[in-house]
Simulated scan of single mutants.
Amino acid sequence: MERTVKSKVVGYRTQDGAGVSLVRVLGDHSVDEFDPILMLDSFDSTDPDDYTAGFPLHPHRGIETISYLARGKMTHLDSLGNEDTISDGEVQWMTAGSGIMHEERLPACERMLGVQLWLNLPADEKMCEPAYHPIRKGQIEDIEIEGGVLRLVAGSYKGRTGFEAPHLPFDYYALELEPHAHVVLDFERDRSVMAFTLLGDCRIAGEPIEEKTAVKLTEGDTLSVETGDTPAQVLVMSSQRLDEPVHWGGPIVMDTRAGLLEAFDELDRGTFIKGKIRFDA
């Protein structure tokens, strides 16, 4: 059975961090529909003034942040002294777990193009050990498909495997499609699947989808993606719904209100960080 479009979310322009201009697509209004993906921000600018202010030191707990850069650079620094920079075609995967303080610097470049999404952690794993995983370009397999390339950012595709998500099953494909391409992707019927048009318009499940739009798909075995007269880059993510309560306050997401209030109380008392953060090079 082919998946169809269940809902579409068009992003809106806003600022975050120290004044980074971005398009916020998913947020607290879309939590249930896109479970387990909580937030999706898109970056696309050729003006360094839009983003070089970066994201100063701030806390996270209860989630994973996944940043994919099609173009540009991003430097991660955290509260225990880890520092790492990714560039074109690479990924920063940070497990906030029980608590992390980090900052993201965005150096000037020819074009900043990418997304950051927040992946919810299951209730019984929200206080797991924090970790940082860079995914280098050489670790991402480029798989030839009809009319383009599927970059296997994480998970598996037709027997090929990429980075393994540490807490939830998560397939992350970056499709780079030529004009007049048509690809059909296979999925387990009950997986929660979404797509995001990072660059260019296309047709997803037969419906025209504009650039910078998130699409939630119904259950099914297959998903079709087609381009018209122009190329497109489409991100496709697949996971399992958690169907758990979400209590979200700024950079912290817990499964109970008590847990959320405790996190902010610990920030005030200076007891937020629980242990050493692991760096997986």
Rank of each mutant, 00 (worst) to 15 (best):
H180A: 14
T218G: 01
P122Y: 10
R269K: 05
Q116I: 06
I143A: 02
S238Q: 07
I204A: 03
R269P: 04
I143V: 15
W248T: 04
S45Q: 00
E90Y: 09
E207I: 06
R269H: 03
A18T: 09
A258T: 15
A131M: 12
G81H: 13
G159I: 04
Q116V: 07
V5I: 12
V5F: 03
C128Q: 06
E110C: 08
D47Y: 04
M127V: 08
E90I: 07
R160Q: 13
V20G: 06
W118Q: 03
C109A: 01
D186P: 14
W93A: 00
G250R: 10
R24Y: 10
E141W: 06
F55H: 07
G81Q: 08
K158Q: 03
K126V: 03
D84G: 15
L106H: 04
Y12F: 06
M254A: 10
E266M: 09
G275Q: 03
L198T: 02
S98K: 02
D221F: 08
A281D: 11
A181T: 13
E226A: 15
M112A: 03
G259H: 02
L175F: 09
E104G: 10
I143P: 01
T75A: 05
E219N: 14
A232P: 15
T218W: 01
R203D: 05
T85D: 09
L26H: 01
D190F: 05
E188P: 12
E2D: 13
E64H: 00
S21R: 09
V10T: 15
G114Y: 02
R13K: 12
G270L: 08
I66L: 04
G148R: 10
R257K: 14
E141V: 03
K8Y: 12
V183S: 09
P48V: 11
E178T: 14
K276H: 10
T95F: 11
Q92H: 12
F170G: 06
K216P: 11
V184P: 09
D16R: 00
R111V: 07
M101H: 00
I140D: 04
L223A: 05
L199M: 13
P166I: 05
S42W: 11
V236K: 04
L260C: 14
T222P: 10
E207R: 11
I37V: 14
G206Y: 01
S67Q: 01
P48T: 00
E104K: 02
L80Y: 09
V253P: 10
E125L: 14
Q92G: 07
G228C: 10
C128G: 11
M1T: 04
S98F: 05
R160A: 12
D28V: 15
E64K: 10
T75E: 00
T271R: 07
L198E: 08
D243C: 15
D47M: 13
W93I: 02
V253N: 04
R71S: 11
Q139N: 11
V91N: 06
G27N: 11
Q116F: 01
I37R: 01
C202I: 09
